[in-house]
Design a protein around this nucleic acid. Structure first.
Lengths: 146, 146
DNA sequence: TTATTTACGGATAATGATTATCAATAAGAG
DNA sequence: CTCTTATTGATAATCATTATCCGTAAATAA
């Protein structure tokens, strides 16, 4: 499912819930869905403004709230100032956060489910989602200065 | 190592770094070290005030910053308003956060290291710490209302 | 197409946790 | 005891996020 296809699907679901399709909303959705770098709300706002200058930051916040409700974006919060968002891979997965440059990478190829399932079983929790973030120094920053 | 022993150790290390031992600091440290319920700064502040009424919230914030630097407390941030702290088990470990009642439980008996190590190997990151938080409904809240 | 309803957008004020500021105080060294 | 300066406490500042509120423009039906 590519970005445009997801966009159509999301707009359709929104409409079903009595929401409307506006140019701003479409532009913001497109920016979120296509971003592969875990941007902040501010960054998405600036991207949308590039080709849609009369957009408000508040509208971007409203849209990210919608996307969160719909499960189409996950939030990365933690020792950062300002949350980052991942609408490209909206299912829970590990993130690797570089404390030097601030870049966030997706942790791939490792199955976290068994650990989550074990913790769920051991605790009698009904787990709905999880968050696994590793903090450290990325390869690029290591090469740069040890 | 019990609370008082840790307290002495921490105070000694602080002194070594040119810090001082004040009654407020001791009271705040004791409150953090003995808390087993992942309190907020505000909650620690109120506890300290019970038997040490002339304490400032700002001092509690300063103390938690010290403890963070020393690795004697870990911070739990996320979809909460206000960070929570765990100075009782200051090494990284999973947390189970109840979205119904807000209580935070420690995830025990499950080894997370292999997953962390696999992600580190796969990413060429130099991982210094991690955070694994599960969100869901605790057993007590399930019993209460499904 | 036009009228009507009302969700939405934009600008900005409000919130709330955390951080910075700074004068007065007191811990610790000599 | 004296001196240096880390620390305290009160409060102002910061900053991401949320709430507010009015004018606008989607969607729907006439």
């Amino acid at each position: 499912m590519d970005t445009e296809e997801r966009l159509r699907d999301i707009l359709q679901r929104l409409q079903k819930d009595g929401h409307r399709m506006t140019p701003q909303r479409v532009a913001i959705l497109r920016a979120f869905l296509s971003a592969q770098d875990h941007p902040t709300v501010e960054q998405v706002y600036r991207r949308v403004c590039r080709d849609f200058p009369m957009t408000s930051l508040a509208t971007v916040y409203k849209t990210v709230a919608l996307l969160k409700e719909m499960g189409e974006v996950i939030e990365i919060s933690g020792d950062l100032q300002g949350s980052r968002y991942d609408a490209f891979h909206p299912e829970p997965h590990p993130h690797l956060i570089c404390t030097r440059c601030g870049q966030i990478y997706d942790g791939e190829g490792v199955d976290v489910q068994p650990v989550v399932a074990a913790l769920q079983a051991q605790s009698a929790f009904q787990v709905s989602t999880y968050r696994l973030d590793l903090y450290g120094v990325c390869a690029a920053c290591q090469a740069q200065s040890g």
